[in-house]
Amino acid sequence: MAALTADDLAAIASRIHDQNASWIRVGMSTCGIAAGAERVYAALEDELQRQGAGVQLKKCGCLGMCAAEPLVEVNIAGMPRVIYCRVDEACARDIVRGHVCGGKLLQDYIIDMQSEDAS
């Protein structure tokens, strides 16, 4: 394709920005993968399909809480955006059934950190 112009950046950004979409992100850096993120991703993918949930499943890098990997961040419309830690395959399926489809947050898996973004 032809070289991008500065205006194209804005066009791409607005195409991607869809704040209301529901999504699940799995931390897939070396730390996450070493802790089993690939299996968790596969379980989420499978369970989402089984339940027919229209939720976007995405990969992302490392949030920093490496000791608590695999981390799965869930953003479902009308629910608080939370991060689950030390997720295994069973927990991944519970996330889809309970949180995504059932509107319930999972007990004993949520992790939070004290941070803010610069800029």
Binding site: R86, I110, I111
Partner: peptide
């Protein structure tokens, strides 16, 4: 909800 870790 019982959290696993709350960052505090």
């Amino acid at each position: 909800v019982r959290a696993a870790d709350i960052g505090v």
